[in-house]
Design a protein around this nucleic acid. Structure first.
Lengths: 143, 143
DNA sequence: CTAGACAATTTAGTTTGTCAAGTATCTAGT
DNA sequence: ACTAGATACTTGACAAACTAAATTGTCTAG
């Protein structure tokens, strides 16, 4: 087998396994969010919305890769629950900037901490593998 | 910092990055499934359902971590599209076993191949990193 | 043979998602 | 300054994915 082909295969295989790991943990994610009375998407939004960094609704739609009209209802529910608030855009009165409320920030912290608990599959790796995995992923995500 | 704590941190950080990578690729997954006129969940089902290995509806619900009643409609739509068929359970007439049709098998193959195309973040890793990532994930998933 | 367990479905209701149309606001060109 | 078109968001209508509770048909233990 030619070198290029073998390396394409390594990347493919790595990604395949990564997808498998992700799918295997989807249920765990759903359950974790449910602990906080959040739907999966609401958890996702909480992750995207950083404290002290208001985000226009449009940008949230972009980040979620969904239609802007979907975000309206999504934010309605989060706002109704007091986790998020809509503020008038500073310069452009068309845009509504989303900001976490105090409760939102607090919940976000708890959720993120819980979400980053590694699953069995990762936890049982040797310490060396765990560090190697971390380092490779840092490079992949360009840190 | 104590050694144990530092290592817990490596696993945590690795998992955090992994989750980030997964979220960043959610949109890509949705778009890829859409190319085949599949919703994300339908893609997931196609992945779970292996050829020549009929699966009771209950087991599918288990694999999807969702209520059994949800699977009914899900399978209705896949069956209506001719990708899947319900068969009477061999021994127990209560269970309905799901099997891919010929079309289902063919589509599954195309979908899986497309799904395993690595994203930018993985593709740009050095060949050595790609192999290391693959090997670590194999160990994590116990291959 | 019957009581309870179990697999799947039905029904009613929520959330997430799309698309098309509407409203308010901004921006360029004249 | 005025207007035409773009842009940000909302609304309304509708499908898919989900849950919980009740129902139907089948199995299994006593």
């Amino acid at each position: 087998m030619a070198t290029a082909a073998r390396e394409r295969t390594a990347a493919r295989e790595a990604w395949r396994l990564l997808v498998e790991l992700a799918f295997a943990n989807k249920g765990r994610f759903v359950a974790t969010m449910a602990e906080f009375d959040l739907t999966p998407v609401q958890g996702h939004v909480l992750r995207i919305l950083e404290p002290e960094r208001p985000l226009p609704m449009n940008d949230l739609a972009e980040a979620l890769k969904c239609d802007a009209s979907n975000v309206t209802g999504l934010v309605d529910r989060l706002e109704h629950r007091g986790l998020v608030e809509r503020r008038a855009g500073a310069r452009d009165r068309r845009v509504r900037e989303l900001a976490l409320t105090r409760d939102g920030v607090a919940l976000r912290e708890r959720v993120l901490h819980r979400m980053s608990e590694p699953p069995e599959a990762v936890a049982r790796l040797s310490p060396a593998d765990q560090r190697a995995l971390r380092d490779i992923l840092r490079r992949a995500l360009d840190r």
